Amino acid sequence: MKTIFDEVKINKLKVKNRIIRSATWEGMAPEDGSFPEELFNVYHELAKGGVGTIITGFTSVADEDQYFNGITRLSNDKQIPSNRKVIEMVHGEDVRIISQLALGGYYKIFYDGSIDLVEPDRMSTDDIKLVINQFKDAAIRAMQAGFDGVQIHGAHHFFLSRFISPVYNHRADEYGKDVFGRMKILKDIYLAISEVAPSLHISMKINCSDFILGGLTEDESMMICEEMAKLGIDSIEVSGNGTSRGGIRVGVNEAYFGEFAASLAERVDTPIILVGGHRSIENMEKVLNSTKIEMLSISRPLIREPGLINRWKSGDSRPATCVSCNACYNTPNHKCIFVLRGME
């Protein structure tokens, strides 16, 4: 019988339990994209709190990415030292750490020095190759810094998510036409990273569906995941647009992307990670033992209780205290409103 506390090895990643801190937006970084002291403290608290693996918050691969403020980056070598400091601290707590490599939007620098957001339809082939190289170069920096792996962020309406979606990509070349063309950028990024950083565990995060009219469907997402599995990707984390749903009730509507993830896990040998609405040990272990899903990732519960996994391991099995109010989206630095009010 599988438990959330099992030590597991999924391809290149050996971890002390099945729980991952899913990438969580923090928005604390200065303009240079480095880790400020307050963000070190966030990761230290998470590492001490008992999770087996941490996936960093959105880490941009491009200096020009202006999609929002406060993003950490691995877009140039100057950012390696602060990333290395975080890694060493996390490893000191026997926790593995993966850098989520992402792009909010493709901001093209024009000949007159101006910068503009360019969506998939307007990108040249050279623009696309540049993005692929940005992901590859960021992965090299991640390896040099000491990360255990990287995650290609293809979800949540960010650049890669839009590129693979039929709502945004109407290209008629090799990077469009159909789902196989739209997914080519993901395949090219994976192959480029695996060639230059073979020691890294390479994961991918993807929407099971865009949940919008004309968007990426579950059937298309399944095809993309199957193709990435054939290439040899090390793990796939299943999410979806509108990931942080409110009104989660223990034992009622937890694991809300679970049906797709379970179906995917039956169809591929690649380890599947499920995020979304996990609140209780009972339901998490039900998922693990009734499906082939290997690992579970959580976000909002750890914003309120960074030490949740240690609490559960100590024998206090009460569900997470997160009430899924999503107020953390509107607080400074993505903090739990109950913690800020001293109501821990």
Rank of each mutant, 00 (worst) to 15 (best):
residue 273 I to S: 02
residue 258 G to T: 01
residue 225 C to F: 01
residue 183 M to I: 04
residue 13 L to G: 09
residue 218 E to K: 14
residue 189 I to F: 05
residue 41 N to I: 03
residue 254 E to Q: 08
residue 108 K to Y: 05
residue 286 K to H: 08
residue 240 G to W: 00
residue 255 A to G: 13
residue 321 T to H: 14
residue 202 I to F: 11
residue 286 K to M: 08
residue 102 A to H: 10
residue 196 V to E: 15
residue 129 K to F: 04
residue 314 S to I: 05
residue 177 K to I: 13
residue 67 Y to V: 10
residue 192 A to G: 00
residue 217 T to D: 06
residue 224 I to A: 02
residue 32 D to I: 05
residue 228 M to C: 05
residue 184 K to S: 07
residue 333 N to I: 00
residue 303 I to V: 15
residue 269 D to V: 01
residue 137 D to K: 13
residue 191 L to R: 14
residue 212 I to Y: 08
residue 83 N to K: 15
residue 19 I to L: 14
residue 178 D to P: 00
residue 172 A to C: 02
residue 98 I to W: 02
residue 219 D to T: 15
residue 308 L to Y: 09
residue 93 E to I: 00
residue 4 I to H: 06
residue 201 H to C: 14
residue 113 G to Q: 11
residue 216 L to S: 09
residue 235 S to I: 04
residue 36 P to I: 00
residue 150 V to S: 13
residue 173 D to H: 07
residue 196 V to D: 05
residue 212 I to A: 11
residue 78 K to W: 02
residue 310 N to E: 14
residue 70 G to Y: 08
residue 39 L to D: 02
residue 295 M to G: 01
residue 99 S to N: 14
residue 215 G to E: 05
residue 141 R to C: 14
residue 48 K to S: 13
residue 65 D to S: 11
residue 254 E to S: 06
residue 311 R to Y: 11
residue 296 L to S: 06
residue 139 A to E: 07
residue 218 E to T: 09
residue 156 H to F: 03
residue 176 G to Q: 08
residue 253 N to R: 09
residue 310 N to Y: 07
residue 140 I to G: 04
residue 206 I to E: 05
residue 146 G to P: 02
residue 285 E to I: 07
residue 310 N to T: 13
residue 276 G to L: 06
residue 301 P to S: 03
residue 306 P to K: 11
residue 73 R to K: 15
residue 194 S to C: 08
residue 60 S to G: 09
residue 136 K to N: 00
residue 68 F to I: 13
residue 256 Y to P: 07
residue 97 I to V: 09
residue 152 I to T: 13
residue 115 I to Q: 10
residue 57 G to S: 11
residue 246 G to D: 12
residue 107 Y to G: 04
residue 253 N to W: 06
residue 150 V to F: 09
